[in-house]
Amino acid sequence: MTIYSFWIFDKHCNCIFDKEWTIPSQPRSGTTNSKQNENVAKLLYGLIFSLRSITDKISSDPVDFLSQKNRIRSITTGKCRVHLFETATGFWFALMTDFKQDDYYDILNHIYKNIFVRFISLNYISPSDFVENEDEKGGQGIRKINNKNFINNLELFLSPLIS
């Protein structure tokens, strides 16, 4: 099970966090929120966004809202697979991995519940909305999650999974 990278997008189409593991055996290696990943982030966002709008249009209306809409779980290409988890508040969590496992839903759910909510939402020092003005909406924002607790806990959690 190799995890290549992890991305978080918010409802303003911005990538607010990205982490890439370059050397698989060393979980603390790799880059966090690096500038080179900005373009990749935008492309990834665009890919997810387009596929999502298409699947929304294809699928029929659900009977009741609890049976969820037909949402994308993963996108597979020749070299890797991107797993998606989205919340009703517009946060998307994307995990780019190899093909060993079909579904990383539980892992992403855990990251959301126990790491993101615990260290970002419940922490009043960390902003709840990562844009500060109109210019940063629509994918043009630049603010990232820098919270050390979040990053440390994320690495701690994902490191046993990176082999």
């Binding site: 609890l66 969820q68 919340t87 009703a88 508040t89 519940k113 419940l122 009043y124």
Partner: peptide
């Protein structure tokens, strides 16, 4: 604006 995340994390509602 923050409690909604806690709520969604606990109930997983769409």
């Amino acid at each position: 604006v923050r409690i909604i995340e806690d709520f969604l994390a606990r109930t997983a509602l769409p």
